[in-house]
């Protein structure tokens, strides 16, 4: 069975593409899938840090392309989960070291052995983006509820639609803060979906655990208490085709809120 190649992209930088890739990859591997993560951000690699695999990288995607090693040799196994592999980007080169055809070729080869090939796309719409999208047949567009990120996501969706091979693209709204949405200081998830008119694959709440997990080099899905981790697990389930309702990301209600709600209902009734 050939696996699917999913590109994780956003256009704008800093919205959480790499964090999303690391977490969805780990979550999918947890559920028993064979997963390979490809970092295409050549020259500014970060995915290895988030997975805590920085010290194991010897060969990179550039070495594979320039035939200094075989593809299998460049795959770094995860510390905890043998189902998860990383194909790291080179730090000492730039995006022009790889072209779209070569990346497509790598994706085709990996598809045979893995259930999911997740491609972490660099920011921007230049060569790096073109490379990353080349082999993909699905896309996850990451955005945050901010105008700038939404505009960039819109541009990306336009580019994805014109690309052959990308059959499906879905939206992931990251760094959502329910409190700000309630006070009308932040755009709601519904508004974002409406503006972009795109299927939603998940909503990830803002979570301070992300910062510590990034520094530790351990994806937040491993932390059961983390709300963002739960949300990423749900996203992984949806990728696998399960129908999972959206996570209730509201902050836990106080007793006072509940009483207010009760009386409001009574008044209406």
């Amino acid at each position: 069975m050939a696996g699917s190649v999913i590109v994780i992209t956003s256009g704008k930088g800093g919205v959480g593409k790499t964090t999303t890739s690391a977490n969805i990859g780990t979550a999918l591997a947890h559920m028993g899938n064979k997963v390979v993560l490809i970092d295409t951000d050549i020259g500014l690699r970060n995915l290895d840090l988030l997975l805590g695999l920085e010290n194991r990288i010897v060969y990179t995607i550039v070495d594979v392309v320039e035939e200094r090693c075989k593809l299998k040799q460049a795959l770094v196994k995860d510390k905890k989960n043998p189902n998860l592999c990383l194909l790291a980007a080179a730090q000492t080169r730039d995006k022009s070291a790889v072209d779209a055809e070569q990346l497509k070729d790598i994706c085709e080869q990996l598809k045979k052995d893995f259930d999911y090939v997740l491609v972490d796309c660099p920011a921007g719409i230049e060569q790096g983006f073109q490379n990353a999208v080349a082999g993909a047949n699905e896309a996850i567009v990451v955005t945050t509820p901010e105008m700038s990120a939404i505009r960039d996501a819109d541009r990306i969706i336009g580019l994805l639609e014109s690309k052959e091979g990308v059959e499906k693209y879905r939206l992931l709204v990251n760094r959502v803060r329910p409190k700000l949405i309630k006070s009308n200081d932040m755009m709601g998830v519904d508004d974002v979906v409406e503006i972009l008119s795109c299927d939603l694959i998940g909503v990830i709440p803002e979570d301070t655990n992300i910062i510590t997990s990034t520094n530790k080099g351990e994806p937040v899905v491993n932390d059961e208490k983390s709300l963002a981790g739960q949300a990423y697990l749900n996203v992984a389930r949806r990728i696998m085709g399960e129908d999972v309702p959206l996570l209730d990301i509201d902050e836990p209600k106080t007793l006072l809120d509940k009483i207010k709600k009760f009386f409001a209902k009574k008044a209406q009734g």
């Binding site: 010897v58 090693c69 299998k72 770094v76």
Partner: peptide, 18 residues
């Protein structure tokens, strides 16, 4: 050592010169 058996999927990494 750079590699345990678990670290890298390839079996024959040692044969390739860097």
């Amino acid at each position: 050592k750079a590699y345990d058996e678990n670290d890298v999927t390839a079996d024959d990494w040692e044969e390739v010169d860097f």
